[in-house]
């Protein structure tokens, strides 16, 4: 599928910009010439299957790994050259749940991290610790996945960084805690101006918080646009077909679902509604119904359904 871009009025400043960012691990392409733009103040959800390159993108932004080529900038700082300055401005929830320091207690790690950030907000940290039920006396090595996530979220949020990079932040959380975390995030954004880049393969888990969506497929960023543009661009069409009908060429059909016996098909098509309708009508088909899709369905239309990365 060709790259989908929608010329939405992009705001002038971006918290995160990458140009031609590429990374390989041996023979495997993790990121392939990615031009990512995360506008200031956005909640940008980077969607992709497992192994699509989402975690690699975040690690490159933090200079935890080196890009093979291309540039990554956070607040205008080249992350390859200013790693420590960039990391000081970022709250990061890593993909992995084994946060290191298995012998330390949660309380000790909190102290340790607090000392590292001058902006650490002790009062806020206390609120988060109690809201997320983090137990100070417990040893990190003995934490469950969900426990670790909650601790990692406190560590990421308590210094109120201008950028949050959250790698599958709701992974391992039960639905009730997940809801609480998302509400906490919304409050956090209301209290301190923050840009958020969230990676996930379950877009419904971050629900309505997303206002920008990017789609990574096998290391390529195949789409990035506002939530509104995505829902406008991907729609489901119920089409009545004449006998011997040929689909118009270049029609980006994400998910054909044929009802051959009834001469009616239901397709999810990528493109502006008027244009798609005109082309279908021009080809002799009759568009019976156009429906909009929930964000997740619209985003999934941009991912392959064959399980390929």
């Amino acid at each position: 599928m060709s790259r989908v871009t929608v010329a939405d009025a992009m705001p002038e400043t971006c918290a995160v910009t990458t140009r031609g960012l590429s990374k390989r691990y041996d023979d495997e392409v993790a990121l392939d010439a990615v031009d990512l733009q995360v506008p200031d103040g956005a909640v940008f959800v980077l969607l992709g299957a497992n192994g699509a390159g989402k975690s690699t993108a975040l690690k490159l932004l933090l200079n935890l790994e080196r890009a093979d080529s291309g540039v990554a900038e956070v607040f205008g700082l080249d992350t390859g050259r200013h790693g420590p300055q960039v990391r000081a401005q970022v709250g990061y929830v890593p993909e992995r749940h084994d946060a290191g320091y298995p012998w330390m207690t949660c309380g000790r790690l909190l102290q340790h991290v607090a000392a590292y950030y001058p902006a650490w907000d002790h009062g806020y940290a206390e609120q988060l610790i109690s809201a997320l039920d983090v137990r100070r006396e417990r040893r990190i090595g003995g934490l469950s996945k969900g426990d670790t996530r909650r601790l990692q979220l406190v560590l990421a949020l308590a210094h109120r960084p201008p950028l949050l990079l959250l790698d599958e932040p709701t992974d391992g959380l039960d639905p009730i805690v997940r809801k609480r975390v998302l509400a906490l995030l919304a409050e956090h954004l209301a209290d301190s101006p923050t840009t958020v880049l969230i990676t996930t393969h379950h877009i419904h888990e971050v629900e309505s918080l997303a206002d920008h969506v990017g789609v990574l497929r096998a290391g390529r960023l195949v789409a990035q646009m506002t939530r509104d543009a995505l829902q406008r661009t991907v729609r489901r069409y119920r089409i009545e077909l004449p006998d011997g009908w040929e689909p118009p060429r270049d029609l980006v059909v994400a998910s054909p679902r044929a009802g051959r016996a009834t001469r009616e098909v239901q397709w999810t098509v990528v493109g502006e509604e008027r244009e798609v309708t005109d082309r279908l009508t021009g080809s002799g088909a009759r568009v019976r119904e156009v429906t909009s899709l929930a964000l997740e369905e619209a985003a999934l239309a941009l991912l392959p359904d064959d399980g390929a990365r």
Binding site: L182, A186, E187, L189, A190, S208, L209, D211
Partner: peptide, 15 residues
């Protein structure tokens, strides 16, 4: 308040 409604609806407060 913006904060309350954003938390309740789980949307970006800017929305």
């Amino acid at each position: 308040s913006v904060r309350e409604l954003a938390a309740e609806l789980v949307v970006n407060p800017r929305t």
